[in-house]
Design a protein around this nucleic acid. Structure first.
Lengths: 276, 276
DNA sequence: GTCTATACCTCGATAGAC
DNA sequence: GTCTATCGAGGTATAGAC
C-alpha cells in the first residue's frame, strides 16, 4: 500500500507543478497566452503528459479559478469578525478590491473570462486553500470539480465541510447577512431583499475592479478614493475609515498583460498599489 | 476626378462591408471567434484583400469599438434633456445597462477585452454614427484612430467638432455635470469631486452589466431590480420615494437597430481541432 | 504506466502572379 | 486590386515507443 500511496503522491505533486506553472504563465502573460505547450515547456515535460492529469486546457483553467477564488475567500475570513455590519461590509469591499488589484490576471480569469470558469470557482472553492503565486512546493490538491477527473482524492483537505454541495458562495452569504443587519438597524432601505442588495453591492465592487483592470484611464483619482465614494453612497457619509484593514501581503501580479504594444497614452497616473 | 471619387467610394464601400461582416461574426460568435479568414469568407474575398483596408485584425476590432461606442453615445443624447439631474442620471444608467444587455458582445469588446480597445472607442467616437447590425450600405467612415491607417477620409461626418482632440468622453461629462447639480442641490455629499463621483457611478453600472454578461447566475432578481437598488443606494429613496416614481422611465428601452442578439452569458470556446 | 514524437488543425500576415 | 500559395507560429490531442 505504501507504494500506491507514493505513486499517488507523485501524481499529485506533478499535478501541483502543472498548476503552478500554469498560474505563473497566467500571472505573467495573461490567460490568453496560456497554452499546453508553454506549461509543458515550463515544467520540462511533453505536452502529452499534461493530458494524463487534466482533460484539457479548460480544466486547468477551472482548477486555477478554484484556487484563486479560495484565496479570495480566505482574505474574507478574518473580516467576518467585525461587529458593525457597515464596517464589516467596508472591510469586505476593500479586501475584494485589493484582491482584484493585487491579482489582476487571476481576477480576470475568474470573473471576466468564461462564465463557466466562475461557476467552477464557486463550486471548487471547498479545496485548494493554498494559492500563493510563488509557491512551488507540493500543493494539497486542486480538483477542478469538473466531475470526470480522477477518482482518488479523499486525502485530507476538507476545509469547510459545508462547502461542496451547492453552498456556491460563502462570500455572498457573508454580504447578505451584513446587509440584512443594516436593514434591521434602519441604516438601509428595507424595500429590497438582502440577496438583491448583495448582488447590487457586489456589482459595484466588481465594476470598480473590472474597470480598473480594463480601462487605462480609470480611475483618475486614487482607487481608494473611488472605493470610499462608492461605500459612502451605499452606507452614508459617516465613518469614513482611513485605515486599511488586513491587506493581503501576497505577491502581486503584473498589472496590464495582453498586448505588449507601446502606447503613449499609458502615461496616465495609475495608483495601483496593493494594500497599504 | 469623378473616377477618383468613384474609386474612393468603392473602397469605402468595401471597408463598410468588411466591418459589417466582422460585426456580424462578433455578435454571433464572440470576439474570440473573429478571424480574418472568416471575414474574408463572409464577404467572399480573399484574406489578403482585407489587409488593403485594415492593417490588422486589431484595427478592425478598434473600428468596431468606435462604432459601438458611438451607438451607445447616441442613446444618451435624448436623455440629456431631462431636467432633474437625478432622473437624468437614472435614465442614463438604464440606457447604459440596456445597451450592454442588448449588445453583449459589443459591450464586451469595448469594455471588457483589451484596454487599448476602450481608448480606441473613446477616441474614435466622433465618427461612425451608423451602427446598425444589418446595414450594408456605405458607412461614413470608421477610422480606428490607430494613427497609422489610411489617409483618405475627410468626407462629411463631423457630428461633433469638439470631439476629436481629447474630448474622450462625452458620456463622462454628462454624468459629471448631473452629479455636480445634485451636489449643488444638497442631494449628494459634497465631499467628493464630480469626476470622482462619476467614475464611481460608472463603475457601478459597469459592474452590473459586466456581471450580467459573465456570471451565469447573476442576477437572481430581475436585472431592473438590481439597477433600481443601485440607483436607490446612490440617490436615496427620497428622490424615488418608496415606489412611486414621478416619471416612469419611458426612454430606457431605446436601444436602436440591434436585433435581439444571442442570449448573454453564453460564451463558447472555439471548437478547435477534430483529431483523427 | 509514462512520456516522446508527431499528426492535424487554424491562425495572422506576406510574397508574388495575374 | 485581387487572388493563390504559403510561411511560421501556435493550438489540441493521439499513436505508439520506452
Amino acid at each position: 500500500m505504501g507504494i500506491t500511496e507514493r505513486k499517488t503522491r507523485q501524481k499529485q505533486a506533478l499535478r501541483g507543478r502543472i498548476l503552478d506553472a500554469a498560474r505563473r504563465i497566467v500571472v505573467r502573460e495573461g490567460f490568453a497566452a496560456l497554452s499546453m505547450r508553454k506549461i509543458a515547456d515550463a515544467i520540462e515535460y511533453s505536452p502529452a503528459t499534461l493530458y494524463l492529469h487534466f482533460a484539457s486546457r479548460d480544466e486547468i483553467a477551472r482548477a486555477l479559478c478554484a484556487q484563486g477564488y479560495a484565496q479570495l475567500l480566505s482574505t474574507f475570513e478574518p473580516l467576518a469578525q467585525i461587529a458593525d455590519p457597515a464596517e464589516r461590509l467596508k472591510g469586505l469591499a476593500r479586501a475584494y478590491v485589493a484582491f482584484g488589484v493585487a491579482h489582476p490576471q487571476t481576477y480576470r480569469l475568474i470573473f471576466m473570462e468564461d462564465p463557466t470558469y466562475m461557476v467552477a470557482a464557486l463550486a471548487g472553492s471547498a479545496e485548494a486553500s493554498e494559492g500563493s503565486a510563488d509557491e512551488t512546493a507540493g500543493h494539497g490538491s486542486g480538483e477542478a470539480a469538473a466531475g470526470n477527473s480522477t477518482a482518488h482524492s479523499g486525502k485530507a483537505i476538507a476545509i469547510n465541510p459545508a462547502a461542496g454541495h451547492e453552498s456556491g458562495d460563502a462570500a455572498m452569504r457573508l454580504m447578505v447577512s451584513a446587509l440584512e443587519e443594516l436593514k434591521a438597524q434602519g441604516r438601509l432601505p428595507a424595500s429590497a431583499a438582502g440577496e438583491v442588495l448583495a448582488e447590487a453591492f457586489w456589482a459595484t465592487l466588481h465594476g470598480i475592479v473590472a474597470l480598473n483592470l480594463t480601462c487605462p484611464v480609470f480611475p483618475t483619482a486614487p482607487l481608494d478614493t473611488i472605493v470610499d465614494v462608492a461605500l459612502d453612497a451605499w452606507f452614508g457619509p459617516r465613518s469614513r475609515a482611513q485605515d486599511t484593514p488586513a491587506a493581503p501581503p501576497a505577491a502581486s501580479e503584473s498589472a496590464p498583460g495582453g498586448a505588449p504594444s507601446a502606447h503613449p497614452s499609458r502615461a496616465q497616473r495609475k495608483p495601483k498599489a496593493s494594500g497599504a
